[in-house]
Simulated assay, not measured.
Amino acid sequence: MDDVTLAHPLVDAVGPGFVVHETDAAVVECSSERTGLLLEARRAGVVAVLLTPGSSRLTAAMSVMLRRTASTWVVREGDRYRAAGSDVVADDVATAMLAPQTVTRSAAIGPGAVPWVEALVSVHHPASEAATLGRTAELLLAGLADVCPEAWGTVEPATLAWSVAEVTAFARRRAPRPTRLVAVAPTTGGVASVQLRIERSATGVTEETRLVLPRPAPSDGLPTDDDIPTVLADLAQRQRVLLGTAWRTSGHPDATVSAHQLPLPVPLGAVVGAAAVRDLGIDPRTLPTGARAVGPARVPSLVLDPTPDDVRSGVVLSRGADAEARWRRLAQLGDALGPRAVEMLGFGDRR
């Protein structure tokens, strides 16, 4: 493929099928300019390569935007290049992009990183004047960290004072076009990152909330990993949850990720909403251990709890043993609910 030309001020180099945006920023945010570059590159059918030093970190929103646009993150180490999160070293950016990636993943937390809780929840809202947007983020943050979003915006950094009414009004003005927003919430020892995706559906509005919550140290009175299913159950009883998952990962306290390690996510809980329970033909009366019905008996949702039996009994497992046991319990739940449920919740994609 010949070199491509993309008229964008952030393009620093071009190659066969790709363009390069280079930055030395210590923290790479999902700014309006970078978002525009990634979207233009995708529309042009070329790959956008973000080239940074190995010491740079990406915000959670920027990391998601790279994945969503099939873009690539490459780190520069002296005169060498490698794909972020990979041990594969290449002589140039193109080789780094195309080389097979052998990613070392474990449940361990890398240097300088702290535990995270990541949650992804989709909620259905009827197409009515009473529908409000942003409440899922508020409920998740209140349940997990006893905080509320502080600021929001369309790009990073978020600068507008948080307001459910303003978020709702902004999305209404953009309808029927989809809306993507970011928000932040200061927490004890860190900053939580929230991303919202709002779009029309056949029967109303779907709001997807993606939360990254750094938890540098256990805090008295706040939920632990074992309490996450209870937080999800409370959410399912307050809102029309379609699907939701929660995972333990790791990153930096400011909700950024580095290129040095891609940790293995560990399942903490999930919600299968009432509509999915109906579509999957799940009989709540025959639920396996680790799954329970919540909400109205006629149209229940399911909460999946992968907490190992040993942990329930008070046994303290090593991080690696805990991760293995949680994945094993999740596999058992998946076998009981069927392959469509596993595919719907995206469990297999996280390993």
Results as ranks from 00 to 15, higher is better:
Thr168Gly: 10
Thr168Trp: 02
Ala169His: 14
Ala169Asn: 12
Phe170Ile: 00
Phe170Val: 05
Phe170Arg: 10
Ala171Tyr: 03
Arg172Tyr: 05
Arg173Phe: 10
Arg174His: 08
Arg174Tyr: 02
Ala175Ser: 15
Arg177His: 10
Pro178Glu: 07
Leu181Gly: 07
Leu181Asp: 06
Val182Leu: 06
Val184Glu: 12
Ala185Tyr: 01
Thr188Val: 15
Gly190Pro: 12
Val191Asn: 03
Ala192Thr: 07
Ser193Gln: 07
Val194Asp: 03
Gln195Trp: 02
Arg197His: 14
Arg197Leu: 15
Ile198Trp: 09
Arg200Gly: 15
Ser201Met: 04
Ser201His: 06
Thr203Trp: 01
Gly204His: 10
Glu207Leu: 03
Arg215Ser: 11
Pro216Arg: 04
Ala217Glu: 14
Ser219Trp: 01
Asp220Gly: 12
Gly221Trp: 04
Leu222Glu: 09
Pro223Val: 11
Pro223Asp: 10
Thr224Ile: 01
Thr230Arg: 11
Leu232Trp: 01
Ala233Asn: 02
Leu235Thr: 00
Gln237Gly: 13
Gln237Pro: 02
Gln237Arg: 13
Gln239Pro: 00
Gln239Ile: 05
Gln239Ser: 04
Arg240Ile: 12
Arg240Tyr: 06
Val241Phe: 05
Leu242Pro: 00
Leu242Ile: 15
Gly244His: 08
Thr245Cys: 07
Thr245Asn: 04
Trp247Val: 08
Trp247Ser: 07
Arg248Trp: 07
Arg248Cys: 08
Pro253Thr: 14
Pro253Asp: 13
Val257Glu: 10
Ser258Gly: 15
Ala259Tyr: 01
His260Lys: 05
Leu262Cys: 07
Val266Gly: 03
Pro267Ile: 14
Gly269Val: 05
Gly269Glu: 01
Ala270Pro: 04
Ala270Phe: 03
Val272Gly: 05
Gly273Cys: 07
Ala275Arg: 15
Ala275Tyr: 02
Ala276Asn: 00
